[in-house]
Simulated assay, not measured.
Amino acid sequence: MRVQGHFNCWPDIQRMAWEKLGAEPRLYRFPLEPAAIDRMHETMRWVQWLEEEQRHLIWMWAKRYEWQKIAKRFGCCTRTAPRRWQRALLDVADHFNQG
Rank of each mutant, 00 (worst) to 15 (best):
E52T: 12
W18D: 13
W46Y: 14
A88T: 00
H56D: 15
K72I: 06
F74Y: 08
W18V: 15
L90C: 03
E53W: 09
R87M: 03
E53R: 12
E52K: 08
T80F: 03
W85N: 02
Q48N: 09
R79P: 00
R83S: 06
H56F: 09
G75P: 12
R73T: 15
R64Q: 14
A62W: 04
D91N: 05
E42F: 10
R83T: 06
V3F: 06
H95M: 14
R45V: 14
I58Q: 02
M60H: 01
A35I: 11
R83I: 09
C77P: 00
R45E: 14
L90F: 02
R26E: 14
R55K: 13
N8Q: 04
F30A: 09
E33A: 13
W61M: 13
R79L: 11
H56L: 15
G75S: 09
R29S: 07
W46S: 05
R2N: 11
G5F: 06
P25W: 04
T80H: 07
A23Q: 07
D91I: 06
W59Y: 12
Q54N: 01
Y28W: 09
R29L: 14
W46G: 03
K63P: 00
L27A: 11
K69M: 06
P25T: 08
D91K: 08
H56R: 14
P82E: 02
Q98M: 12
C76S: 00
F7M: 11
E53L: 06
R45L: 15
R83W: 00
Q4P: 07
G99K: 12
R73H: 14
I37V: 15
N97D: 13
Q48A: 13
H56T: 10
F74S: 06
L21K: 04
L32M: 12
I58T: 02
T78E: 10
L89N: 01
M16Q: 12
E19Y: 02
A81W: 02
Q14T: 12
R55W: 02
A71G: 03
R83P: 00
A71M: 04
R73I: 05
D12C: 08
C76R: 01
E24F: 10
A88D: 01
F96L: 15
D38Y: 02
G22F: 04
H56E: 15
V92T: 01
W61N: 14
C77I: 01
A35L: 14
R79S: 11
W18F: 13
G5V: 09
A62E: 05
W61R: 15
I70R: 01
H41L: 15
E42I: 05
